[in-house]
Design a protein around this nucleic acid. Structure first.
Lengths: 145, 145
DNA sequence: AAATATTTATTGCACGTGCAACAAAGTCAA
DNA sequence: TTGACTTTGTTGCACGTGCAATAAATATTT
């Protein structure tokens, strides 16, 4: 019979990735949650709207790695808060055209420097290892699913 | 006035880490969920018990990066399923002694090879980039919080 | 044109989650 | 020993989540 090998979770890639991701996300989220009252899904939608202009829910789902129901609910919260508008696309009336309001643009303009500063801090702390991390992540993310 | 810089979520480290982590976790979880009926928190508890023997909830919380309530609930589900036992530590009766049952040990003995095979596949797909990823993750995880 | 299939966004539901509150057990100081 | 404080694990609660079901709009087929 074969003995069960020993196994240390701390050496297990999925665990390590998750631990790293949740720590970073939490740290980043804490930095803007109190000041701006924004959740991670909401931040992602805002960032994508800033980058891409008026887009549909489906668009965000595809490019920002979020379920459409998650996008839909984040968008509703952002609309209630006055940061985005939802309009029906007149060409294809199934589609929504999500777009930043002036308040939304102002919010993003304050959020982006915070995000960039946070990222810069993390990368600086990693020093030369930051390039390895980025390269490794690219390999993972570009891999055929 | 200062213009708002452009910003692409796909270049943003927290986003990239989360996307990578959730894809890998989902892929791994799909591989054992159907066959073994185990969730990620439950898997973590099982793996740690295999590695560490009889331990308390607090122990798992500290070493497996999970909130104590999450550990507590995962342990209850595992107990109901017959995979672990919960006994009170006779020295300090606040503490629980969580321990694998024979059924639990048998389950872990089947799970670990699946986990190792999955990890090997991912690392192989990454090729030479896998070392970069591991080194980058180590740097992140070892960084002072 | 009419019938059928597909796409898009929302929502009901069951469930997992984090946090705060809590009870029980233990520690420590006076 | 008594009383205040700390630690450990569980639970109530509000909320976010994924998934399936749905309705509305569009596309496709006959």
């Amino acid at each position: 019979m074969t003995a069960t090998p020993d196994f240390d979770l701390n050496d297990f890639l999925p665990y390590r990735l998750n631990a790293a991701a949740s720590r970073i996300s939490r740290a980043f989220s804490e930095r803007y949650r109190d000041e701006f009252g924004i959740s991670i899904p909401e931040w992602r939608v805002l960032a994508h709207l800033h980058h891409a202009g008026a887009v549909s829910v489906r668009d965000i789902e595809a490019r920002v790695d979020m379920e459409k129901s998650k996008v839909s609910r984040a968008a509703s919260r952002l609309e209630s808060a006055g940061y985005i508008t939802k309009a029906v696309n007149s060409t294809d009336r199934r589609l929504l055209a999500l777009e930043l309001t002036p308040e939304g643009k102002a919010l993003v303009a304050r959020l982006i420097p915070v995000a960039l500063a946070f990222q810069a801090e993390v990368l600086e702390k990693l020093g030369p290892m930051s390039a390895s991390l980025q390269a490794g992540l690219s390999a993972l993310l570009d891999a055929p699913r």
